[in-house]
């Protein structure tokens, strides 16, 4: 019996096109140049190792002499994060409706809102913090305002995308009943987008907690100010306590948020 000729399988790897090869070479060259630009220096790293060991040894044992005021600052940090993210989330909802393709009253309004949200998101939170410290003075209020703006930049975009992604069937059913635009959003779009909205909101809270720690470094209230002071005073044992407190706070918020996520997303409507 003659064996039929089998078609040859395709080659395992496609050779890169000349354009891809040139682009890859250009990327490698730029990356090598960037290593110098990023100040990577093995000698400085080796010289710095004893200092790192020195600071590390001074961090142990962590100090407890300012435990109570530090705890107060941690609480303020969390309060800033909570209030900032909740207000930011609430303000993001109407912005997301205006920025979503399926609910915006006019494409121009959608473009304007998306532009505003992109601008808010592009400016780093530390820049917003400096702006608000200069505007309303040092303290947690400046930090909270920063977190509100930061949350809007994050949530409004993802909320709008979540609203655009919902199945168009139930909103069409509402329109067929004679429901108005607000009824359609409240009855169909929001309940259907809820898992995504809850997820994004909880990520926003986690993000706000981490940001609020850094905001204190520029005088916007919270535990960051304590951390900056202790580092400037060379009280690394106090810094260690603050870092541990931040670690516990972030872990607690992340753990609570995953628990809440599971509960809220699985719940009955």
């Amino acid at each position: 019996m003659t064996e039929s000729i089998r078609p040859a399988p395709p080659s395992r790897f496609e050779p890169p096109s000349p354009v891809s090869a040139v682009l890859f070479a250009a990327f490698l060259a730029f990356f090598t140049w960037s290593l110098a630009g990023a100040g990577i220096s093995i000698s400085e790293l080796i010289e710095g190792l004893p200092n790192m060991a020195q600071i590390g040894s001074e961090m142990v044992p962590p100090a407890t002499d300012r435990f109570s005021p530090m705890l107060d600052s941690v609480l303020v940090t969390f309060q800033m994060a909570l209030v900032g993210s909740v207000i930011g989330i609430l303000l993001s909802l109407p912005l997301a409706v205006l920025a979503s393709r399926n609910h915006t009253p006019h494409p121009l309004i959608r473009s304007a809102v998306r532009g505003f949200v992109s601008f808010v998101r592009t400016v780093p939170d530390l820049a917003w913090a400096l702006f608000f410290v200069a505007s309303v003075g040092l303290g947690p209020f400046a930090g909270t305002l920063t977190l509100i703006v930061d949350t809007i930049g994050f949530c409004a975009r993802f909320f709008a995308e979540a609203m655009e992604e919902v199945d168009s069937g139930p909103p069409e059913a509402m329109a067929a009943i004679g429901a108005g635009p607000i009824d359609i959003i409240a009855c169909a779009t929001l309940p259907m987008a809820m898992p995504s909205l809850v997820n994004t909101s909880l990520f926003a809270l986690e993000k706000a907690v981490r940001s609020s720690v850094v905001l204190g470094l520029v005088g916007a209230g919270g535990i960051g100010a304590e951390l900056a002071t202790s580092m400037e005073m060379f009280r690394y044992d106090q810094s260690a306590t603050i870092v541990l407190m931040i670690f516990v706070l972030v872990m607690a918020v992340e753990s609570l948020s995953s628990h809440a996520r599971a509960k809220l997303i699985g719940g009955r409507g």
């Binding site: 069937g169 139930p170 069409e172 309940p191 259907m192 009955r268």
Partner: peptide, 15 residues
């Protein structure tokens, strides 16, 4: 007019 769709189009997460 009550409109009944092929896919029923109920809001899935609501009762």
């Amino acid at each position: 007019v009550g409109f009944v769709f092929q896919k029923h189009n109920l809001v899935p997460r609501l009762s």
